[in-house]
Write a protein that binds this DNA or RNA. Structure first.
Lengths: 139, 139
DNA sequence: GACTTTTAGTTAGCATGCATACAATATTGT
DNA sequence: ACAATATTGTATGCATGCTAACTAAAAGTC
């Protein structure tokens, strides 16, 4: 049995390929895919906390904290202490972060469209459904 | 649109989940998934070179070289200079490596079976086919 | 044969991602 | 009120996985 016939290999490679395509578009802006994902979530939900952000991204907290720290160092994102819970922080895009994020073309759509080349609508939905079931089996 | 509805997210997460399950089984042996994959390939093709190994695994050469180095440090794998090409190396499992690899239960099958729980044969084949087409779109 | 180009592999640097351990604050139980 | 517990976030260490830059040896060109 050939290695590139295994489900794990195919999942790994297709995920990596798709991510690489995304990062190709992000490179001119100096962003990585996870950084872009963080900015997208914070842009969508200003004031989001670290735990909720990590949960939405599917990362653990240390990973998410690290990505946020690198974005903070570039002054694209702000950590603010919550007034209601001294442990919690609220995340916001800085003005520079908002400007940069607004300047990004519709990257996700573009990469998704490329991934879906040659597929019909039903096939994509089916693929997503199968992937969700795979995840369920490991939950 | 929810983030966990995107194809990229689903691919990434299902690949990570499956890999985590594999590493769960590998942990008692002190191996990671890529390390196991390297040992499996070298076991299958003794004397394989670094470039060919990297190609089969879908990694680049520096990544593969690093994984091999960590296995070599644990004396599970051997780097031998080729007699025909002074640049090339040939990879072999050490005796300890062979013993360890032989002691591993049929991990891939086990994890694959778990991933495929609730799927019929056709669905798995279809999923693999869809993933191959995704990869083609980014090739 | 000398020169150029390829090819095999490593080194260095960076950003994930993970597990573990920790500090600080909130919450709960009594 | 106060001790035990849970929760929020960070620090650390490690193994990927990538790009870019490099060395050494082989192959092609003239």
């Amino acid at each position: 049995m050939d290695i590139d016939d295994s489900l794990g290999f195919l999942l790994n490679r297709s995920a990596t390929d798709m991510r690489a395509a995304l990062e190709n578009h992000l490179a001119p802006y100096g962003l990585t895919a996870p950084q872009w994902a963080v900015m997208a979530r914070v842009s969508h939900t200003p004031g989001i906390g670290m735990t909720e952000l990590a949960s939405q991204l599917g990362y653990d907290k240390p990973t998410t904290s690290g990505i946020v720290s690198r974005l903070e160092k570039r002054e694209l994102i702000l950590r603010r202490r919550s007034n209601f819970d001294q442990r919690a922080i609220e995340l916001y895009l800085s003005d520079a972060g908002k400007t940069l994020f607004a300047a990004l073309p519709a990257l996700a759509q573009h990469v998704n469209a490329r991934a879906a080349q040659g597929f019909n609508e039903g096939e994509i939905l089916l693929l997503k459904e199968l992937l969700r079931r795979i995840r369920q089996n490991f939950a």
